[in-house]
């Protein structure tokens, strides 16, 4: 089948690779060529700009080492645990602030004040309270994830069609039934959007905490290699961190898009219905 497709496109005279893809390939090759030229130029002190071959050799060596997976697991555990705690707290409180509007209005001021503040300044408090081990990193991830999730959950709550809520109440639904049968099904898309943003900042928060003070994790590994001036290894760890962070973001975006395409109610649909 594939061969038939190839033959057809060749016969029709259309290029197999579109113009955008050609630009992307040329850009990758251009950047790689410039990097290699700089690495071999001698303009920089030894290994500050290492050859890509050295970086990939370091990456390969890391992937074959058991210790690397210990650091990878530590970061993954911290991110996922913190993200889960922060997200559950964000969804729960978001629903509460949406249902109890007076409480919501009181808390709005504090949440809106703290949400955009640089979370890293709270790290010393977290280290004093939870110590410099895994606990403070989980707390940092939880705090980072909490704000985007609670903000999008409250926004979603305010846009739920009031008819759904009236129907739930007319059936004498209890608080848990209201949450599981009315609120959560209407909140899928806003919550997923909050989770996507929350996961991104949870990853950044965890890695920053590891860089500042820790003894395990990918952030710790990267900064340790920097301090030991093992630059190719440092680049290799940064590549892994970027690949994981961008992969997690792409996955959440895909979930978001798929739910949107399936017609899950989102904020604008709900507001339109109301």
């Amino acid at each position: 089948m594939a061969e038939i497709g190839l033959a057809r496109s060749a016969a029709a005279g259309t290029p197999l690779v579109g113009p955008e893809a050609r630009i992307q390939i040329a850009t990758v090759l251009g950047v790689w060529g410039m990097w290699e030229a700089l690495a071999r130029s001698g303009l920089f002190y030894r290994d500050i700009v290492p050859s890509s071959l050295k970086v990939f050799a370091a990456l390969y060596a890391h992937l074959a080492e058991a210790e690397f997976y210990h650091h990878l697991w530590t970061t993954t555990y911290e991110v996922l645990t913190g993200f889960t705690i922060g997200s559950l707290a964000g969804i729960g409180l978001g629903i509460l602030f949406g249902v109890r509007r007076f409480l919501g209005r009181v808390m709005d001021g504090y949440i809106l004040a703290l949400a955009p503040a640089p979370k890293v300044v709270f790290l010393p408090i977290l280290m004093v309270v939870f110590g410099i081990g895994v606990g403070s990193k989980i707390a940092m991830a939880a705090m980072s994830a909490f704000f985007p999730v609670v903000l999008s959950t409250v926004a979603g709550m305010l846009l739920i069609n009031p008819t759904f809520i009236k129907v739930g109440r007319s059936f004498n639904a209890g608080p848990w039934q209201m949450v599981s049968k009315v609120y959560l099904p209407s909140l899928v898309l806003p919550v997923i959007t909050g989770l996507r943003l929350g996961l991104g900042v949870a990853i950044i928060g965890t890695l920053i905490a590891e860089i500042k003070l820790s003894n395990a994790g990918l952030g710790f590994l990267a900064i340790q290699y920097y301090e030991m001036f093992r630059i190719p290894e440092m680049y290799a760890v940064i590549i892994v961190i970027f690949a994981l962070a961008m992969g997690a973001n792409a996955l959440m975006t895909k979930v978001n898009d798929r739910l949107g395409r399936r017609g899950m109610p989102n904020a604008s649909d709900i507001s339109g219905a109301a």
Binding site: G200, I204, I211
Partner: peptide
């Protein structure tokens, strides 16, 4: 969306 801040060692 990427953690650009972590490029700072570079």
């Amino acid at each position: 969306a990427s953690p650009k801040l972590l490029l700072y060692p570079l």
